[in-house]
């Protein structure tokens, strides 16, 4: 009993340590960039960082749940675009009201998530392969449905306001992102849904043996991920004033990197939304800061890659120490 409590305490302190470490790295990066360039710490640039974090952040939140169950999702980017394209189809091609089009777009991505979950849970296809297949299926469908051309929202100027309309000079996309983050944090921490997400990741067999319908929960978790990719897709489309069908590949890696930097373990059972948000910000602040400093683009990529490795390595070091 005593040992159990002690272990738990250590776990908590280890987790919060990682968060403190990640958070202080983020703050340090911001300070360094602010000193290095007068163009970094400006209102307009901070807004720029926030907007570019919104999309990857939403994707990363969605996949955090999936990664905690020790699953993975490679279809993140193209399923996001599936949401954009379907929003375009509903609003521009079919002339539905904007709110209905948005709902339809998000629903489309959610359905893709349900398919991912069913392939994994029911057909027992490893999530890496199931979602790899979905990544390609969605990529192809996006091109087919859109006729390989961007779908513009020219006749519905209000659609652009969804992400880019401003409230206190801050674009709506930022509020949507932060709102979604808070909701996701509460769901993961305080609800049965969150509890089973962790439990499946720690020991799926034990959960199954205790009589829980694991398959159904898994499908729900992948659907939940798809739901968030759908929101990201709508924001993307609104920001670009168009659904860009070829967009998507590459976003999955950015989102997964943010999750891992945020301390979520790829082997499942551990992770937090706050960590993921910090991870997403580390990625976007780094990209933005290096651009602001006019570091040549080829070196930006090298530095970003190195930081990802360092971040994950420090996480491993910390785990070793606490183990």
């Amino acid at each position: 009993m005593d040992a159990n409590i002690k272990e738990k305490k250590q776990l908590i302190s280890a987790d919060s340590k990682q968060k403190v470490l990640a958070f202080s790295s983020l703050i340090m990066m911001i300070i360094v960039f602010s000193i290095a360039s007068p163009h970094f710490a400006t209102f307009s640039n901070f807004i720029g960082i926030l907007i570019s974090t919104a999309v990857t952040g939403l994707l990363a939140i969605g996949v955090t749940f999936i990664i905690i169950t020790s699953g993975i999702d490679l279809s993140i980017g193209t399923v996001m675009t599936f949401g954009s394209v379907m929003t375009g189809v509903f609003i521009t091609f079919m002339g539905l009201p904007i709110w209905l089009g948005i709902l339809g777009g998000i629903l489309a991505s959610t359905v893709a998530g349900i398919v991912n979950g069913s392939l994994t849970a029911k057909l027992k296809i490893p999530p890496f392969i199931a979602t790899l297949g979905m990544m390609m299926v969605a990529e192809g469908l996006n091109l087919v449905i859109s006729g390989t051309k961007p779908i513009y929202f020219m006749h519905t100027p209000a659609f652009r306001k969804i992400a880019m309309g401003k409230f206190f000079n801050i674009p709506h996309a930022v509020f949507i992102f932060l709102g979604a983050a808070i909701v996701a944090g509460i769901i993961l921490d305080k609800t049965v849904f969150g509890k089973y997400t962790y439990a499946i990741g720690s020991n799926e067999e034990a959960v199954r043996l205790s009589g829980v319908n694991v398959d159904r929960w898994k499908i729900a978790i992948y659907a939940f991920g798809g739901f968030f990719y759908g929101i990201a897709g709508v924001i993307m489309a609104s920001r670009l004033n168009s659904a860009q069908p070829a967009l998507g590949p590459g976003y999955e890696l950015e989102a997964i990197a943010a999750v891992v930097i945020g301390g979520t373990s790829l082997s499942g059972g551990k992770g937090t939304i706050l960590g993921t948000i910090i991870g997403a910000f580390i990625m976007s602040v780094l990209t933005n800061g290096l651009r602001i400093l006019s570091i040549p683009q080829e070196w930006q990529t090298v530095i970003t890659g190195a930081i990802v490795i360092i971040a994950v390595y420090t996480d491993i070091l910390r785990r070793k120490k606490t183990a």
């Binding site: 400006t42 640039n45 961007p150 670009l240 590459g250 602001i292």
Partner: peptide, 21 residues
């Protein structure tokens, strides 16, 4: 410039940063 000519959103981010400079 973006890695491929499909990365519209990346280009917008680059443009935004360029403007902020």
């Amino acid at each position: 410039g973006p890695e491929s000519e499909t990365q519209v959103a990346n280009q917008i981010d680059m443009l935004q940063t360029a403007v902020d400079k």
